[in-house]
Amino acid sequence: MNPATKQILVIGGGISGLSAAVDLARLGLAVILVEHSASLGGHAAHLSCKAADRCVACGACMVEEKIREADTHDAVQIFLNTRIEKIDRHNRFDVTLNQNGQCRHVSVDAVLLATGFTPFHPVNKPYGYGRFENVMTNLELDQMMRRNGAIKRPSDDEFPGNMAFIQCVGSRDSSLGHLWCSKICCGAALRMARCIQHRQPEVKATFFYIDVQNFGKNFQTYYADAQQKVQLIRSIPADVLKTADDRLKLSYFDPDTHAYQESVFDMVILSIGLMPSESTRDLAAMLNIDMAGYSFEQKSALLRPPDGVFIAGTALEPMGIAESTLSAGKAAGDIFHYLKNHDTDIR
């Protein structure tokens, strides 16, 4: 195989797509990277650094490096604001790209879906999201920190005195049929709580959870630190109500006293789950992949896609930044192996 004659379409410019594009380019393959939004980086590009006095290996800064690597590599061609209009499978894939209404045809030897996840929309949960300004998702909290370098209450721009972090909003929820753990939220919320406390030492943080999941290499150290500095309550609150003085009242079953309990907070942060994305379904349909039963509950048909189609990152299942880069590396290896054994040059 002459790698330079091979072209791969990577759909999705998030951490997995970027990472795979760079890995493929380094193997000498030509890459077309398509991103439907106006910028690269996906969800990770909106996350904030969670370092307290030292790096806590959240990985959020990695996306900047990946963007630079993809941007500066000659073999990676990037199309922003671009959607996939049509994919025709002959021996190769004939793909119609639509960039802001302008269509363009490309022919590729393999397709990688790195279409990511959709964040759970918590509007139907009894936590007042969308009604109370100071109830935010973890993603919105990260964006606020990234933009302003500090956390303030959206309703009055005041610094919060205490904050509640509610885990498993939309994950591990049999009433919604979401039988999966989103994996990244425990680490993200506890790191974020400690990061905020480092910058705003007056903040008291309370973490409502079912089970604390492992994160990172030094999980024990981070967890021990969180146990010291964050109030950990093994309970999922029943509801959130606004008080007369614009604070938020949480009611929950307190595992220590075995009684109904109410606590008042300045801000409530919902750790929303990772959900399968519509783009994955739409693109899979174009590629004639049977998507019946596609969910994060079990590894689905997506793990055995048709020849020439590959999948990486959170399109497969919930995973963090580190695991996404690994997943991208695996996909790049699979693609390289496939191209070596499938001569698609002959049409």
Binding site: L326, G329, G333
Partner: peptide, 21 residues
């Protein structure tokens, strides 16, 4: 998870050998 490392390791090694790292 270790299974995913097989291809990822091979890709990294190949890039090393090609000198692209």
């Amino acid at each position: 998870a270790q299974q995913s490392e097989i291809q990822a390791t091979a890709v990294t090694l190949l890039s090393l050998i090609k000198g692209t790292l």
